[in-house]
Design a protein around this nucleic acid. Structure first.
Length: 720
DNA sequence: GTTTTTGCACTTTTT
DNA sequence: GTGCAAAAAC
C-alpha cells in the first residue's frame, strides 16, 4: 500500500491494517511493537478515523509523549488524539465529569507521601497509639487497601478478610473526602464509576460513545480496574486494540493481572490475535540467554523469539569480591566502552533496588562519566519543592488539609502543633476543614482566641496568593516565594545544602513559566495534575549524552546497546522480600528477562560475593536464575579493574561448582532452619529434588510453602 | 514553641 | 550509612 507498510513484516502489517473489531497484539521484546502501534494510529487516521475520537493509553507519560512525536512524524494531527496514562486520563475525565462519580472537580491529587501520612494518622487513631507504632501497620494496610482498590473491590470486601484494615480504609476514606482529595487508586476507581453506570446520572459526556478506537499499550500490566475502564470506553464500537507480552508482566504486586490477556480472548471471542516474535533488537546470544531463562516459568504460554540480528558476542558474567569492586569494574567497563568510541548514552546500568545506585554513581563520577539517574530522589520529592507545591495546592483546593498542615508553619510563623491540633479537633466536630477554619470561615474555635492573631496574617497571605493566581502559575509560584520570604528562610535555616535548595525553588519557577507558555488556557489544577502524575521514567531523555543508571522496572520499554545488570544475586533476584510462592518467583524471573532484553549488543551480568545491605556486610550468592541461563563467558576475579568486556573469555558453565549442588531430601516431621524465618517443622512434602515443595510450620505458627531449591533449608538436630 | 540531639528502622519494584 | 521521628534541651 503506502509507506506506512514499507519495512514491516507480514505480522506487523496484519496488526497495522486490521480494521474494526477487537485486536490483541502479543509482542515479545524488541519485535517492533511501538512501530506497529504508531503506524496503526496513522493508518486509522488515513483511513478516515476522526483523530479526536481516538484514545491511546500508555504506561508512562513519556511513552505518550513519544507516541505523539512519532505519529506527528507520520503527518498525523497527533495533538487532536488523546494520549495519556490511565491515571492522567482518569484525572482529566474527573475534572470534566467528577460529579458523575460523586467528587468535586477541584480535587487535589494526593501523592504517595501524603497518602501514607493520612493512613498513619488513621491507624494511630484506631489503634490509640502514637504515629511510630502506627507506621509499620500503616504500610502494610496501605498495600492491602491499594491492592483491593485496583482489583475493583470495596472496603466491605477487605473488611471480611481483615476487619481492622477495613476500618482503616473507611477512616482514611473519610479523611480524604473531607479534604477533597483523591489518591492514585481513587483516580481509577472514580473514573470507572463515571464511565460505567451506577453513579449519579448527570454525566456531561457519554464516555461510552466518546471514542471510536481505544488502544492500550503494556496490556500485561493493566489491572482489573483499568481493564474495566478500557472495556467500558469501547462498549459501543468494540474497537479495542491491546498490545502486550505476558513474559514482561512485572507489576503483579500493584494489582496487574496477566489473566487479563486470557479474559480478553474470553470477553472478545472474535478478537484477532497477532503474534510478533521476530526480534530486531538483540543479538542471538542475548536473546538465547533470555529465552533460556524465561523458559523456566511454568505458568506461561510457550513462545520463542527469533533473532533477526547475528549471534554477536557471548553474554558475560562479572564476579566481584564485594560491592565496591563491582561498582569499580562496572565503571571501568563503561569507561572502556566510551574510550572505544561508544556514546555514553548507549550504556545502561540496571539495578533491582534504588538503594543500589550510590556506589555505581560514585564509580561513574570518579571517572568523569556523566550519568542520569532514573528512579531515585526526584525533584518533585524534594522538601522545598513540596513546600511550595503545598501552597499551590491550598490555593487550588481550599479544603486541602494535608497541604495546609504542611505549610501553616513553614516558614516559621509561631503556629505550633498545639494550635494545629485544636484546629483539627474543631474541624472534626464541625465538619469544616481546618484550612477553612484558619481563614475565619465558620465559627471560630473556642479557646483559640490568642492563636487567632497568629492565624490572621496567614489567612491574608493565602487570600493574596489566590489573587495572584489569575496571572498564571509562574506568577503564583513567584508570589509564594516572595510573600513568604521563602528563599531567605531557606538561606538561614539550612547550612550546606541551602544553595541547592534555593536553586531547586528557582527551577520550579522556570518549570511553571514553561507550563504557562506551553499551556493553552490550562490552569493551576492542570499544572498540579501533570506534576503529581509525573513518573520516574518520564524524566529520562535518551538524547542526553549520559550513561543511565535505572531500576529494572523503570527500564521497561527502553533499549540500550550496552546493558549491565548489577547485583544479580539471590536476595535481589529474586528479592528477599518476595515470597517463595511460585507466582512471585516467576515475576522475579520475568523482571530479569525484561532487564536482559533491553540489551541490543552487549550484556554483562554482575554479582558480588559480599555486599553491604542496610549497613551490614552480608555474604552473597549468585542469583539462582543465572544457573538457568547456563553457559556465559565468565570474567574471573573482578578484583582486577580493567574492562570485563575486552578480556578473552571461554564459554563456561556458570559457577564451576554449582552452589548447593545437592538438595537434602526432606520428609514430614523433620526439624529445619530457614535463613529468614528461623526454626520450623516440615508438615508436608510434594515432589522431590530441587523442585520439591515442602510445607513448613515455623515457631510463630505460620505455615509457608517453600521450594527446596530456593529456600535454603537446613536440617537441624533439635528444635531452636 | 523552637532547636538540637539521640535513637531507630530501614531498603523492593511505581502510577 | 541514612533519614526521619520522638525526646531533650533551649
Amino acid at each position: 500500500m503506502d509507506e506506512l507498510l514499507r519495512d514491516l513484516n507480514p505480522e506487523q502489517i496484519e496488526a497495522v491494517t486490521h480494521g474494526a473489531g477487537p485486536l490483541l497484539i502479543l509482542a515479545g521484546p524488541g519485535t517492533g511493537k511501538t512501530r506497529v502501534v504508531t503506524r496503526r494510529v496513522a493508518h486509522l487516521v488515513r483511513s478516515g478515523a476522526d483523530p479526536r475520537r481516538l484514545l491511546a493509553i500508555t504506561f508512562t507519560n513519556k511513552a505518550a509523549g513519544e507516541m505523539r512525536e512519532r505519529t506527528a512524524a507520520l503527518d498525523v494531527p497527533s495533538g487532536e488524539i488523546t494520549m495519556a496514562t490511565f491515571h492522567a486520563f482518569a484525572a482529566r475525565l474527573l475534572r470534566v465529569d467528577g460529579r458523575a462519580a460523586g467528587i468535586d472537580p477541584s480535587f487535589s491529587i494526593v501523592d504517595e507521601d501524603d497518602r501514607s501520612a493520612l493512613l498513619r494518622a488513621a491507624v494511630a487513631e484506631l489503634m490509640g497509639t502514637g504515629a511510630d507504632a502506627a507506621r509499620k501497620t500503616a504500610a502494610e494496610v496501605s498495600r492491602r487497601i491499594s491492592f483491593f482498590k485496583n482489583a475493583g473491590k470495596g472496603a466491605e470486601d477487605l473488611e471480611r478478610e481483615d476487619p481492622f484494615a477495613g476500618r482503616v480504609w473507611r477512616e482514611y476514606e473519610a479523611r480524604l473526602r473531607a479534604m477533597n482529595g483523591v489518591d492514585f487508586d481513587d483516580l481509577l476507581v472514580l473514573a470507572e464509576k463515571a464511565v460505567s453506570g451506577g453513579g449519579p446520572g448527570d454525566r456531561r459526556v457519554d464516555w461510552r460513545a466518546a471514542y471510536d478506537h481505544v488502544l492500550v499499550d503494556e496490556y500485561q500490566d493493566v489491572n482489573a480496574l483499568q481493564y474495566r475502564i478500557a472495556r467500558a470506553l469501547c462498549a459501543r464500537t468494540r474497537n479495542l486494540c491491546v498490545t502486550g507480552d505476558p513474559d514482561q508482566s512485572i507489576y503483579r504486586w500493584r494489582g496487574a493481572d496477566v489473566e487479563n490477556i486470557l479474559s480478553f480472548e474470553r470477553d472478545f471471542p472474535d478478537a484477532r490475535v497477532v503474534r510478533l516474535v521476530r526480534n530486531y533488537r538483540s543479538t542471538g546470544a542475548i536473546l538465547r540467554a533470555a529465552d533460556r531463562l524465561i523458559a523456566n516459568n511454568v505458568r506461561r504460554k510457550e513462545k520463542t523469539l527469533t533473532a533477526m540480528k547475528g549471534e554477536g558476542e557471548p553474554v558475560r558474567l562479572l564476579s566481584s569480591g564485594d560491592d565496591r569492586d563491582e561498582a569499580e569494574s562496572i565503571g571501568a567497563a563503561a569507561a572502556a566502552e566510551i574510550a572505544s568510541g561508544r556514546a555514553p548514552s548507549d550504556i545502561a546500568i540496571l539495578v533491582r533496588t534504588a538503594a543500589q545506585t550510590r556506589l555505581l554513581e560514585q564509580s561513574l563520577a570518579a571517572r568523569g562519566i556523566a550519568y542520569a539517574l532514573v528512579g531515585g530522589a526526584r525533584f518533585w520529592d524534594r522538601r522545598e519543592v513540596r513546600d511550595v507545591i503545598a501552597y499551590l495546592r491550598l490555593v487550588a483546593n481550599p479544603r486541602d488539609s494535608v497541604s495546609f498542615e504542611r505549610i501553616v508553619n513553614v516558614p516559621r510563623r509561631g503556629i505550633g502543633e498545639k494550635t494545629v491540633e485544636a484546629l483539627r479537633a474543631h474541624a472534626a466536630r464541625t465538619g469544616i476543614p481546618a484550612p477553612e477554619l484558619a481563614r475565619g470561615r465558620g465559627p471560630w474555635p473556642e479557646g483559640l482566641a490568642r492563636e487567632r492573631a497568629k492565624l490572621a496574617p496567614f489567612a491574608r497571605l493565602i487570600a493574596r496568593l489566590e489573587a495572584s493566581a489569575a496571572a498564571g502559575v509562574a506568577a503564583l509560584v513567584r508570589a509564594v516565594i516572595d510573600e513568604t520570604r521563602y528563599e531567605a528562610w531557606l538561606a538561614e535555616s539550612e547550612g550546606p545544602s541551602a544553595d541547592e535548595r534555593i536553586e531547586n525553588v528557582r527551577e520550579l519557577v522556570n518549570d511553571a513559566a514553561q507550563f504557562d507558555r506551553e499551556g493553552e488556557g490550562r490552569g493551576l489544577n492542570e499544572y498540579l495534575e501533570t506534576r503529581a502524575l509525573a513518573g520516574d521514567a518520564d524524566s529520562y531523555d535518551p538524547a542526553a549524552p549520559r550513561a543511565t543508571i535505572l531500576t529494572m522496572h523503570a527500564a521497561k520499554g527502553l533499549e540500550f546497546p550496552v546493558v549491565v545488570v548489577a547485583g544479580a544475586e539471590e536476595g535481589f533476584l529474586p528479592h528477599a522480600r518476595s515470597s517463595d510462592r511460585i507466582e512471585e518467583i516467576e515475576e522475579e524471573r520475568r523482571l530479569l528477562f525484561v532487564a536482559m532484553t533491553r540489551a541490543k549488543d552487549r550484556l554483562l551480568l554482575s554479582w558480588a560475593e559480599r555486599r553491604a545491605v542496610a549497613g551490614t556486610i552480608l555474604p552473597r550468592v549468585p542469583s539462582p536464575f543465572l544457573r538457568e541461563i547456563g553457559p556465559v563467558a565468565e570474567d574471573g576475579g573482578g578484583r582486577r579493574r580493567d574492562d570485563p568486556f575486552s578480556r578473552p573469555g571461554e564459554d563456561l558453565f556458570f559457577g564451576r561448582e554449582p552452589a548447593p549442588s545437592h538438595y537434602p531430601a526432606f520428609s514430614a516431621g523433620d526439624l529445619v532452619r530457614h535463613s529468614f524465618y528461623g526454626p520450623g517443622t516440615i508438615t508436608a512434602v510434594r515432589g522431590s529434588g530441587p523442585e520439591a515443595k515442602v510445607t513448613v510450620r515455623f515457631r510463630d505458627g505460620a505455615e509457608k510453602q517453600l521450594i527446596v531449591e530456593f529456600a535454603k533449608l537446613v536440617r537441624v538436630a533439635a528444635p531452636g
